[in-house]
Nucleic acid binder design. Sequence first.
DNA 1: TAATTAAGTAACTTTTAGGTTACGCAAAGA
DNA 2: TCTTTGCGTAACCTAAAAGTTACTTAATTA
Lengths: 106, 106
Amino acid sequence: MNQSFNAFQIVADPSRRQMLQLLSQDSMTINGLAEHFDMSRPAISKHVRILNDGGFISIQDKGRERHCTLKQDGFNELQQWIDYFDKFWLNKLKKLETLINQKSKQ
Amino acid sequence: MNQSFNAFQIVADPSRRQMLQLLSQDSMTINGLAEHFDMSRPAISKHVRILNDGGFISIQDKGRERHCTLKQDGFNELQQWIDYFDKFWLNKLKKLETLINQKSKQ
DNA sequence: TAATTAAGTAACTTTTAGGTTACGCAAAGA
DNA sequence: TCTTTGCGTAACCTAAAAGTTACTTAATTA
């Protein structure tokens, strides 16, 4: 498979977001995850692979089971992007305050 | 057109993210935006509509021109989602610290 | 008022994300 | 060792996202 997603595309899918949500409660095997979804196991496998490739989860093989755990890496890119715009709004607010202060001094 | 996107889908598209990036520098008309992209104007129009519907930008009509400005609303849903996992990691870190502290007391 | 400019709409095409079924393989149990 | 279980891969299908061209409309300008 040749699918390569960026962090934003990865969390754009509702099922994948739900998986991250579930894994934030507890680490799970592939089948454990699958129980929560109304789709075939291969479909689950695909999502898991995408989450793994994107650094949102890590996978520990234990015999024939694969245990999925949340991993911070994938979230970082999103975080940074959000942070950038956060600063934009904060800055805008600051400028507005300065403006109001100047007005009140007149 | 009947396209309805959630906040995550909206920022999943690289062109739309670039638009938000550009608008964080300065507000722009539709054609102003279009200059930065290698795609037809109708394609730009579509993206702008999606950003507007999602509350990521607002549009002020000035004559035949439409001026686009960043708007905070759309970012909020993303922010909240990120915050949830932020807390997850912080919490995990705290638990780890507690564990280390307990060890050192033994 | 005729021409130009800024932008939207409609209809269509292409690409791709997300799903399926069928099959294979290795680990675990009977 | 035979069967079951947990999971992956391959090939395929479908729906929808993202793009196109052709046309329209309304504001501006010559």
